[in-house]
Design a protein around this nucleic acid. Structure first.
Lengths: 105, 105
DNA sequence: ACTAATTTGTTCTATATAGCGAACAAATAT
DNA sequence: ATATTTGTTCGCTATATAGAACAAATTAGT
């Protein structure tokens, strides 16, 4: 299971069969910087780059950044589901992706 | 409806009754920089800052960054919902937040 | 199999800008 | 009227990020 930002990017990229150049082209970033992101843990990319990368890899930025705790309590299921169904297609898709990914970690 | 990153931060912050100093303390950033984020459109904060800010304001980074399209097609609802229920509480909470926010835009 | 060409990954140097601290200004409270 | 809180500006340093050039690996040709 990948845990750092770099590991996640590398895994997702390779799973898609992209080279660094491929991903660089799609994300408006240089391949040298992508390499640093994957291999040097101390990098802190901008939200903009993160957005491009997340999109190219089909995940959300929240998944890449993998935040920490946040207060929790029970969910009202029906209300939840009704709300979900009213979302725009793009947003639905994103929610779905997050659920898929988080379910695996 | 706030549209830029700065507008969103400002609105959320003020709605919570926070001063720039308050938010700065909670998010590991300087108030001067927060001011720039709110008032100068050309700023590009790091994912790290974004994460802190999003958390302090109770939203996701994806909401703050408001990405663009992503491929879409039908969702298998039951599977979807079963998966959702298996998530960790923290993650459930995040999904819920996103749905709430996106439902309003 | 051997080598030349092409693709992929890595390192280095240079530049723009993220992000801070402290000083200043405006507003609000006492 | 003064003190305290809030917002704004400025200059400095660290670091994000690009653009090569270089190295390793892979592919294609003979």
């Amino acid at each position: 299971m990948p845990t750092t930002l770099g590991q996640k990017i590398k895994k997702l990229r390779q799973d898609k069969g992209y080279s660094l150049d491929d991903l660089a082209r799609e994300t408006e970033t240089s391949k040298s910087y992508l390499w640093e992101l994957e291999n040097r843990d101390e990098r802190k990319p901008s939200g903009e780059k993160l957005t491009n990368i997340a999109q190219a890899l089909g995940v959300t930025t929240d998944y890449l950044l993998d935040e920490k705790a946040s207060p929790d309590e029970a969910v009202l299921r029906e209300a939840f589901f009704r709300k979900y169904n009213k979302l725009e297609p793009d947003d639905k898709e994103k929610i779905k992706q997050m659920i898929d990914l988080w379910g695996k970690k």
